[in-house]
Amino acid sequence: MPILSRTLERLFFLAAIGSALLTAAIFLLLCQLGKPLFQHGGLGTLLCSPWNPGHGQYGIYPMIVGSLSIAFLSVLISFPFSLGCAFFITHFGPLALRRKLLNLVRFMTSIPTVVYGFVALFLLVPFMREYLTGGSGLNILTASLMLAVLIAPTMIIFFVDSLQRVPLSYRQAVDALGGSPAQQLLYVVLPMAWPGILNGLLLGLGRAMGDTLISLMLAGNAVAVPTAMTQAARTLTAHIALVMAADFASMEFQSIFACGIFLYLFTALLIVALRLVGRLSPRGL
């Protein structure tokens, strides 16, 4: 019996350590395969030069700009909207509807990304083409709008969670003083729940940065540096998906490992930021 139990305990340990090591191994594998690229010109030129394979330039700067602008724009659209929905669920909605909206939001998390993209391609894109942006309708704004819908459930669930964790006694105190639900929200709940809100915001940003399908299907995938919201752009994730077809040994192909490394580091930094925000929260809220 002791042998069996010791073996099992060792297996648990191995599973945990193994998974953690594999996480590091991914990073090393990406670096290893992207190595020729670093030797070619150094990290600085890689991150800052344009994408122009015809002239031997394989910089991923346009993709970084594309990724960041689409991600930030979608968070900018989604944040107030998600906050409004979260307020509805915790404060303003009729009791019967609150639960229904929360269930709808949970259901939204189960809708596959590719389905969002598919519907947007045949519904939102023609609309944008006809009425708002002109051109092909495939641009940063279209992708950001759809991405905003995609990341809304993540944000709403986090917001609701952190708003509800404010102690009931505080909220009842406002009620007893004759405050309206909106006043309660503005002056008591929000000032206490903001670390949780920030947490949800950062998670939404992470999801927006990491999403592939929406930007691949809707952003137009142009390799030039975008200068307006109505222009097409290519994200790092879409770049990885698109260059796959090319030849293994080419510099073009190796640039996708630079994209992978950038995305990996961005994620890691975001998670560390989330941890720091977690420390800020007062009294374990």
Binding site: S19, L30, L33, G210, T237, A241, G260, L263, A268, I271
Partner: peptide
């Protein structure tokens, strides 16, 4: 370990796919 698992959970799926391809 929990920091590492959080990072792993946050890595974009295309990067996981890329490392699979690698």
């Amino acid at each position: 370990l929990s920091l590492v698992f959080d990072v792993l959970a946050g890595i974009p799926s295309i990067v996981i796919g890329l490392s699979g391809f690698a």
